[in-house]
Write a protein that binds this DNA or RNA. Sequence first.
DNA 1: TATTTTTGTTTAAACGATTAAGTTTTTGCC
DNA 2: GGCAAAAACTTAATCGTTTAAACAAAAATA
Lengths: 335, 335
Amino acid sequence: MKKKVSLKDIANRVGVSTALVSYVLNNKKEGRISEESARKIREAAREMNYRTNQIARSLKTNKTFTIGLVIADISNPFFSRLARIIEDEAEQKNYTVIIGSSDEKPEKFCKLVDTFLDKQVDGLIIAATDGTESCLNELIENNIPFVLVDRYFPSIHANYVALDNFKAAFTATQQLISIGCNNIGMVTYNSPLFNLTERKKGFLAALKENGNRNNRSRLKEVSIKARQDEVEKAVANLLSSTQPVDGLLFGSNTIAVQAVKYINTLPLRVPKDLALICFDETDSLDLFYAPLTYIRQPLEDMARQATAILLDRMDKNNKITQVNIEGELIIRKSA
Amino acid sequence: MKKKVSLKDIANRVGVSTALVSYVLNNKKEGRISEESARKIREAAREMNYRTNQIARSLKTNKTFTIGLVIADISNPFFSRLARIIEDEAEQKNYTVIIGSSDEKPEKFCKLVDTFLDKQVDGLIIAATDGTESCLNELIENNIPFVLVDRYFPSIHANYVALDNFKAAFTATQQLISIGCNNIGMVTYNSPLFNLTERKKGFLAALKENGNRNNRSRLKEVSIKARQDEVEKAVANLLSSTQPVDGLLFGSNTIAVQAVKYINTLPLRVPKDLALICFDETDSLDLFYAPLTYIRQPLEDMARQATAILLDRMDKNNKITQVNIEGELIIRKSA
DNA sequence: TATTTTTGTTTAAACGATTAAGTTTTTGCC
DNA sequence: GGCAAAAACTTAATCGTTTAAACAAAAATA
C-alpha cells in the first residue's frame, strides 16, 4: 500500500509548517498568505496526490458531514426512493448518507442508531418502528438532531415530516363510496404505529359519515411482515363473508401487490366486481389490467423537507418543526 | 448538548489512567487486570453512558469498519435489493455501509469514490459505470480493496462477481427460438459496459447458431437513462418492420417494465403474437396478464460473495478473485 | 530612527482513542 | 529477608488534522 500522504508530508517537502499547509488547502486566512507559498503548497499537494483525511478532521472539528438514515428496509421501493432523494439532497450540501434497515425490529433499530451515533453522525433521519419510543426519547435527551419521516409518535415532541394519513384514507374511502361501493373493506397492518392507525381511523370515519355500520368487521389486519399467504387469507376472508366486499382499500403498496396478485387469480373483474385503492405509488400495479387508483405520497417533498429541517436543526438549535403533507388521490382504472 | 463522555472522564472518576479504561472496555490484557478495577470501570462506563468515539478509534487504528457501496441508483430495485443483502452481510461482520448513486455518470462516480476514500472506508463494492476505468485503475494503483459487482471490465484485473451475461442471453434467446419464434428482437442499452455487450453477443450468437441472418437490425438500443418514450419507440420500431418481431428479449428489468406498459396498450396477445423474456426479476411483471419469463440473477449469492471477497481482501492481501455466476431462466407465461 | 502595524509563518495544544514500553506493587520461593 | 517473577497499572507517543496564540520580518507611520 502506497503510504498515504499527510499534511506533514507536504509541509516537509515544501519546507513549511503543517499549519500553513492546512490554511492554504482550506482557504483560510485568505490574503494573509504569500502567493508564493500558496502556490508551492497547492502544487505539492496535487503532485503528491494529497487527500485530506476526514477522520482526522472530524475528530478535531467534531463534524463528520454524515447523516444516518434509518428505515425499515432499503429494498422496499418506498424507502429506496425516499433514500435516493435524501441522498441527492444531502450530497448537495456535502453530506454523505449511511443507511440502515431496521426490519421493523426495535432492537435492530436501536442498534443501528447506536452504531450511527458511535460513528458520530451529525444527525439522523428516521422512519421509526413500533416500540422505539424510548430510543427516540434518549435522542432527545442527548440533544441529538433528528427528523422523523413517514412515521411519528404523537407522544414524542420531535421534528417530523409525514403524510396526513387520516385524511388520505378518508379521501380514498370516500372515492370508493362515491363510485357506488356498498361494502367496503380494508386490508392493513396490525401495527400500532401512529401513521397506520390513522389510516384505519380515516377509513372508519369515512364509512361512519356515510351511515355504514358493522365497519370493524371489514377491517382486516395483517402483520407488518406479512407474506403472500397472510394477505391472501385476509382478502379471501373479506370476499367470502355473507356480504362480500365490493371495494377494498390497501394500507400499503406491499399489501396491494400481494393482494392484487391473488385477486388476479379470481374470477372477479376490477373495478366492476371489486374496486381497489392503495397507498403509495408503484410500478407493479401499472401493469395490472386495471391500474390501481392510489394515494400518492409526495416523496420528493417529504425527503426534501426532512433533509432541510435536519440541516437546519444541525447548525442552529432551533424549534421543533412538524409537517403534515397532504396525499394526492390519483384516480386510474381500479376505482 | 450534554457533553460527551470520554475515556478520560471515566478514568478521572474511577481514579485510574485512560489506558486501563481502554484495556478494560476492549477486553484486552485479559487476566492481567484486577477484578476490582475492571468492575469499577465497567460500572462507571455504564453509569456515565459512555459510548466509544469511533472516529477517534479509527484515527488511531486506521480502520473504520465502513464499506462504501457505489451503485448506479439506489432507487432501482435491482440495486436496492443488492444493497440490502450487502448491508446484512456487512452488519454480521460489524461493518457499516455507506451508499452512493452514480446515476451512470462517470464524474459523479469518481466523486463518490473520492468522498468515500476521504472518509477512509476500509473497502469498496462497486457497480461500475461506463467511463470509469481510469478511476478503477487508480484504486488498483493505490492498493485500495474493492470488488466489482454486476459490471466489470475485462481489461481491468480486479475482483469481481458478475453474471455470465453471454450465456444468460444465449439461453434466453434459445428459449424464444424453441417455442417457435421466427423473428426475435432485443431491446437493450447502447452502453459499452461489458456486461451489456455480452448480453447482445449472447443474443446474436444464439440467433446465428440457428441460421438467422439480418440479426443486427433487430437489435434496438436505447440510452442507459432511457425513459418511457424512448423504449416505446424502439419496441414500435421492431413491431412495424416488414417482418415484425414475434419474440423479444429485454436487456434489463427497467426496459422490460417500460416496454410491457406499452405492449399492454397494443392489440397483441402475449405470448401468442409476441413472446417476451427479460433480465432480472421484478414484482412489476408479476401482475401482467402473462407474467414474464426472466433470467434470475442470484442476487443473494452475488452480494454475499462480493462481501466475502472484499472482507477477505481487506485483511489478507490475497489474490484476485473473479466469479461468474450463472443465471437461471425462470419460465412463466410470456415465453 | 524608533515604533507601530501588517503580513507571513510557526508553535503547540487539542480532539479521543490505542498501545508499546516502562514502572510500581504484589506474590512466591528459597 | 531477599530476590525474581508475575500482576497491575501508568506514561507518553501517536494517528492527521485544526486553530488560537505567539513570533519574526517587513512595511507603514511618526
